[in-house]
Design a protein around this nucleic acid. Structure first.
Lengths: 291, 291
DNA sequence: CGCTGTGATACCCGGCAGGTATCGTCGAAG
DNA sequence: CTTCGACGATACCTGCCGGGTATCACAGCG
């Protein structure tokens, strides 16, 4: 099977519409129809149910969509990593580390400092991303390692090492009555009348609920300050609180564990060095300072 | 990038010879040369060092060889799994479980029995393989799950659950003086004059050493019985010992852990059921019986 | 009963993958 | 030093196939 066909199929399976898929692929619809049909013939299974008014995936189609995305990611990763390996013929290689922009500054800072002191350290490019999916970045080779946070990220398919663990806090508008409390429970925070819990993408999709959809940390801070929402965030978020915010410890929120994760089969020496530095640091890294 | 180019490159990188690679691919040498050159141009890096007398990999080439194999595996897996998902339109799906032929009969038997009792259980096809690489089978979709044994297999890139742990024993010719001992150490067994330690592929290659290269369990049994070699194997191997063999416990060999492993991103319901059965079994599974 | 939106079909064309023949070059042999 | 052999690169041709345009078939809808 060919990446071309796979790319075409994924486009159609995502759009569930040959015309739109063709447009997205920058081609006309008839060749796309033909290519999909040819793919079906080659695999010997039908992938799409052509109903009147649109298209639906068969069970084989669902499998191919899922596995095909992984295969396309792997192919893109191979190309990208080969390019990077040969691009600059500089013995100091480059590593791309994906971190959540609002993530643990302090941990990152310490890691970068410690790593830069390692003899022969690679150059680290930090890829800051908001709520973008770090898992995708790792899978398709745009990043070599990522700082990920369970239970928000899934570590499936990657190798990883635990770095730090922290609790979670609720961030409320400072003027809100609950802001005076010593501590809260998740249930209490989830059910404040007129103050819905903010939602952000988890595994790529926004969970359902009444609260606002958050795209970045500034937006969240603003909405909380305005008294429009409340959020449950890791302890280290105290670093970016405003005067209009109140941080209240939660007694029963799950612990957030920061991991460094990388593609399972990775063999790069530079990466191994970074991971070693991160795990060695682990011992003498204090919990994020409280404000 | 295209799977065709990737396949070509992998062939050349493995053969390190355009002529042989072309032959393996069933094509003539010139188009292969051209395709590789085009790939290099497209990626913007040089992958092969064309010395006089053959070809060598650049560092980018090494990366692409490694990552490219993974990408090709992923593509093959996507095709195979889609085919299987749609092939038989029978609600009972099929799962392929790869096990080492000489592996723990008893564990496998119990697992299959228990799973077949699960309502809506899929049909399990057991893929027995000698010392073939189960990791490859999982990666390229020929198998859905595997029973793997650390430290012999690597679980990197897969999800897995521990099932059982066992010690290791030395198998010696019954007539050998050491066969009378109560227990032995790895060092003692490794260094018997005239009785070199058998070697089998670990991560795809035979470790160096004077001992014979083992391809299957029967061959190993025969060689030991003939007094030509000695082997260190998991406890459960007692099940296939001959009268001419002596099994001596080792005091310091690493524990062998049997895992059930599966592709990290797998979402099949049937597979989830199998894994649940396996882990539930774990509690009430005794250590392999001693002969 | 036409109109619209959708995928399938028919047909043509150009580019590219693949083949054959040949060259350039380096190493080994003498 | 010369010659030969091995091997990858180049030149050039050809047929296939991927992609485009035009059109059809059909279902839903007013």
């Amino acid at each position: 099977m060919d990446t071309r066909e796979l790319r075409y199929f994924v486009a159609v399976a995502e759009e569930l519409h040959f015309g739109r898929a063709a447009e997205r692929l920058g081609m006309a619809q008839p060749p796309l129809s033909r290519a999909i049909k040819q793919l079906e013939r080659r695999l010997g299974v039908s992938l799409l149910e052509r109903n009147r008014r649109g298209v639906a995936l068969t069970s084989a189609g669902e499998v191919l969509l899922y596995e095909g995305r992984a295969a396309l990611d792997a192919t893109a990763a191979a190309a990208r990593r080969a390019q990077r390996a040969g691009g600059v013929d500089d013995p100091r290689s480059r590593l791309v580390l994906a971190v959540k922009a609002a993530g643990s500054h302090e941990l990152l800072q310490k890691l970068l400092d410690a790593y830069s002191a390692v003899p022969g350290a690679a150059e680290i490019e930090v890829l800051l991303c908001g709520f973008c999916d770090q898992e995708g970045l790792l899978r398709d080779g745009r990043a070599d390692a990522a700082l990920m946070h369970t239970p928000f990220n899934s570590l499936a398919g990657f190798d990883s090492e635990e770095l730090t663990t922290e609790g979670q806090i609720a961030i409320l508008p400072a003027r809100h009555p609950l802001a005076a409390r010593e501590s809260l429970t998740v249930a209490e925070v989830s059910d404040v009348p007129g103050l819905p819990l903010a939602r952000w993408p988890s595994y790529g999709v926004y969970p359902p609920g009444p609260g606002p959809e958050i795209r970045d940390q500034t937006q969240l801070a603003q909405l909380i300050a305005l008294g429009r929402t409340v959020a449950i965030v890791p302890d280290s978020a105290r670093a970016w609180l405003w005067a209009e915010h109140a941080a209240i410890p939660l007694t029963d929120a799950p612990q957030v564990v920061t991991h460094i994760a990388w593609p399972a089969h990775s063999r790069s020496l530079a990466l191994a060095g970074l991971i070693r530095t991160a795990t060695e640091q682990r011992g003498d890294h204090d919990q994020p300072r409280q404000r």
